[in-house]
Each structure stands twice: as structure tokens, then as C-alpha cells.
Amino acid sequence: MALNIWRFASPQVIYPIAGRMIPGFMLAAAVLALAGLYIGFFVAPTDFQQGESYRIIFIHVPAAWMSMLIYVVMAFWCAIGMIMRTRLSFMMALALAPTGALMTFIALWTGALWGKPAWGTWWVWDARLTSELILLFLYIGFLSLHAAIDDVRRADRAAGLLALVGVINVPIIYFSVQWWNTLHQGASVSLTRAPSMASTMLAGMLIMVLSAWMYSIAASLMRLRIIILEREADADWVQEQIVPIAQGAKP
């Protein structure tokens, strides 16, 4: 039956595969980060307007983009989980959510730190920062709904549906806030509109975006393996294969 292909991607099969992929992604993230930071700090020139404080974009923009991207990928896996009824897809979404929330948290903090010298206040009701804050609420909503429901299968599908409803509303919320921002303070305040980017600045930022991507994948895969262990704790493949290895040599 067509559905069986998805049954193949069972937790037992994915666990070792994910295990092998994590070091690769972590290494890529580290290398890209070093390259990006080197360009960002040692090659990219000083910005004539904001001086050195603009160098925060090398961490703020990747985090902001990742927070948005992870939410969409999370909603994608939830949709797959609901249509194909595969539990692994829900586990993937649940593995992504905390990393996405942390990326949002980083984006908010680095945004505030960037705004302080430019505008003298810690929090700027800038369109993108405000949308980022709302995105954090959506992540928290997903995680707390999932945590509040005891039955894991129902929690997966309820939180999954919330993610789908959320992802449909994200663009609406974004444009409403965008419009709200231009109405009340005029367009000039838009802090995070990228300054006229020298090519090296742009290169540094894009490399850091790739690095953030690699890191998010690695972190999510690590969390996925743990979720698989937690949910398949009494499965015999876990007890025979995983536990002895963990106690003995490093896997």
C-alpha cells in the first residue's frame, strides 16, 4: 500500500541515520560560523552611519530568518504528520520547536541590543521586532499546548493543528504589524532595514545564515533522537541496541 513507504521512515531506522548526520552538520555550522565572523569582523568595513554596532546583524538577521523558517518547516512536518499519520513527522516538528523558539529569543535580544545605541531605548516597536515577539508567542503556544496534553498522540495532532493555523496567520500578522508600524511612526524608524550593504557585509551575513541553518538542523536532530528514545523507551530495539552502547563505548 502506498502508505507503507512512510512506515519505512520508522524511528528505529531514523535514529542511527540522524546520529551519523549530526557531527557533519555541527562541523559545517562551526566552520561556516568562523568564516562568517572572520568576514564580518575583519573584512567588512565600518558602517558610516552606525559605526561598529551594525556588526550585530551577523547574528541578529540569521536568528530572525531561522526563527521564521523553522516555524514554516515545523508546520510542514505537522501537515505531513496529519495527512500521512506518521508519528515520526510529529516528533520532527516537536524537535524543531524549541530551537525555533530559542532563535526567536536570540533575535529579540540582539535586536534590542542593536536598537539601544541607535535609538536610545532598549525596545523599539519596530515592525520586524514586534512580529518576532508575536512569533515567540506562537512558539510558546505550540510548546505549552503540547506539554498540557497528556496523551502524546493527541498532543502531537492538537499542537500540529495549532502550528498549521499559526502558519496561515503569520503573514497576516506580519503585514498587519508592518502597516501598524508605518501608520504610527512613519517608515524612518525601521531599524532593521539592512543598511546599504557593502558586498562583504552581505557575504558575512549570508554565511552566518547558512551556519545558523546547519546548527538548527544539528540541534533539532539531536532533540529528535532524544524524543525517539523517550517515546520508544519500552521498544526492544531501544533496550537491546541503544542502552548497551550508551553504557559501553560512546555511540
Binding site: E52, I59, P98, I106, W109, T110, W114, K116, A219, M222
Partner: peptide, 27 residues
Amino acid sequence: AMGGYADYVWGAYGITVLVIVAELLSL
């Protein structure tokens, strides 16, 4: 010194490193 913006730039990177390390440790 980061052109006088040391607190903000290193604050931002510090928080980022802190969050990433915290996430990996908790995992």
C-alpha cells in the same frame, strides 16, 4: 572596544553563545 559599542556587540554575541551552549547542555 568595538568602536565604543563593545557592550552592545559583545552583549549580543555573548547572549547568542550562552543560548547555544545552554541548549546543547540541556540536550
